[in-house]
Design a protein around this nucleic acid. Structure first.
Length: 443
RNA sequence: GUGCCCAUAGCUCAAUGGUAGAGCGCUGCUCUGUGGCAGCAGUGAUGAGGGGUUCAACUCCCCCUGGGCACCCCA
């Protein structure tokens, strides 16, 4: 009659899998929140000071937004996007990066009319379907700063770099290097690409497979090859610095001069080529020298991005950093932060009647602005005090049957072990007094 | 997507092919309204999941899932 029942009852094997997180995803557990809060706070303060306004764009965007901007030939679009088709037939993607969406929002809402340039700051999750590795996840968080609109002024390039420099310093991350390069504009870049390709074509039969592919798809990346056999070709390859046009050269020089002025140390690296199509002129990446985690903050100028979206050319520059990578580096560099401040006051109840009134006492402390810890579900005084001790509380408020009758409360100093009975109406006052005192610890 | 390594309790790790132990943690007792120390006890693993070889599998083989590392690329 009911043969199906058997299958339903058999649960163990599959249910284990319900507790498994999908590949490349990660939980951010309470113990790690200190790091996240720290980064969040530092980034907000920087954004606030340098006048970047917060903007949040949706997690889902049209697939075509990224195809047009990031580039149809890039890894990000070709193999790393999470895409889906909605019931209505829209073709959407979980956003793999933040710059294009911010530009989309800027154009969509005509934010340029609010004054130019506009400066934006954002943070949130991004998604790329690639194999997890050190500092690499399928869902990861980025913090980004973008300056959109106005004129193409190298001072903005410098300011973006400055902010990321300050972010790293604010987080006490050491041993970083900043690599800067210019990849030219739409006039000089194709020119250079052609020269580079022509040069490499002569060595076609000696190149590694990757380079052969790059030669066809993205010659700029040829300079990035790590294969030993390909190294010699680099040396005589046409140098980007010699080939960019005069205005791009001037732009780069100006950016570097601003950085010099700010005393931000950089390395000119003509092999630095970013994998997203929308960059032009300035590109930059920060690295930690004692970590193999990959790029920390990175970004550049993207004056053509608006055009890719069918709008008129709009000057823009910006960058983003992966939050997990920052944390990873901070952990390996053993950056120390004070842990979350403990609840200094802990409430201990004794007996049913007192338990009944405990929530109300918590409320009283709350309205007085005194954070209070509790273990109201525990019955024994011992267990409650143990908890108070474990979380580093300084004062314990103890009240039970007797105290209810007397309308009083016991305040126990957990450092000295001394305790005193005070009347309930003076409880808040007495607690505040003791918290200020900070009595000398005795042993 | 490709290659190499890995998977045992909440955590860190043990155990010549004979159905699993420790430390830490957590709970409690010694101390029936008083913590930190100590001692004791308890809690906890159908060995990630599935299949195979074997009299016998945590141990050997395969698949799958997840993790680490590298390539690719990037944050």
């Amino acid at each position: 009659m009911t043969p199906r029942k058997v299958a339903i009852k058999k649960k163990a094997p599959t249910e284990e899998n319900l507790f498994r997180i999908p590949r490349g995803m990660h939980d951010i557990l309470p113990a790690d929140q200190v790091w996240w809060e720290r980064i969040d706070k530092t980034a907000r303060e920087l954004a606030d000071f340098y006048n970047f306004q917060r903007i949040e764009t949706p997690i889902l965007e049209q697939v075509s937004l990224f195809e047009r901007t990031v580039g149809g030939d890039t890894d990000i679009v070709q193999k790393e996007m999470y895409t889906l088709k909605t019931k209505g037939g829209d073709f959407l993607a979980l956003r793999p990066e933040g710059t294009a969406p911010v530009m989309r929002a800027y154009l969509d809402h005509g934010l340029g009319s609010l004054g130019q340039p506009q400066k934006f700051f954002y943070q949130g999750p991004f998604f790329r379907h690639e194999n997890p590795q050190a500092g690499r996840f399928r869902q990861f968080y980025q913090i980004g700063f973008e300056i959109i609109g106005g004129v193409n002024d190298p001072i903005y390039d410098a300011q973006v770099i400055l902010i990321f420099d300050r972010l790293l310093k604010g987080l006490k991350i050491k041993n970083t290097i900043l690599k800067v390069n210019s990849i030219g504009c739409k006039i000089c870049r194709p020119n250079y690409k052609r020269q580079l390709a022509n040069y490499y074509k002569r060595y076609e039969k000696d190149l590694c497979n990757n380079c052969l592919r790059r030669l066809k798809v993205n010659p700029l990346r040829l300079l990035d090859c790590k294969n030993q056999n390909c190294q010699p070709f680099k040396e005589k390859a046409p140098n980007l610095f010699d080939k960019i046009c005069t205005s791009c050269g001037r732009h780069l020089r100006a950016v570097l001069e601003y950085l010099d002025e700010l005393e931000i140390v950089y390395e000119l690296d003509n092999t630095l080529v970013r994998g997203l199509d929308y960059y032009s002129q300035t590109v930059f990446e920060f690295y930690a020298t004692d970590s193999n985690i990959g790029a920390l903050p990175g970004g550049g100028r993207y004056d053509y991005l608006a055009e890719f979206l069918g709008s008129k050319a709009t000057a823009a520059v910006g960058g983003a950093t992966g939050v997990e990578r920052l944390i990873e580096v901070m952990k390996t560099q053993e950056v120390k932060w004070p842990s979350r401040t403990p609840r200094k006051v802990f409430l201990v109840h004794v007996g049913d009647l007192a338990k009944k009134k405990s929530l109300k006492i918590v409320e009283e402390l709350r309205s007085a602005g005194i954070p209070v810890g509790e273990a109201l579900g525990k019955e024994s005084v011992k267990a409650q005090l143990k908890q108070a001790d474990k979380q580093g509380s300084v004062l314990a408020i103890i009240f039970g049957q007797k105290e209810i009758f007397e309308e009083s409360v016991i305040i126990r100093d957990l450092r000295t072990g001394l305790q005193e009975s005070v009347i309930l109406s003076k409880m808040v006052f007495e607690i505040q007094k003791r918290l200020k005192e900070r009595p000398v610890e005795n042993k």
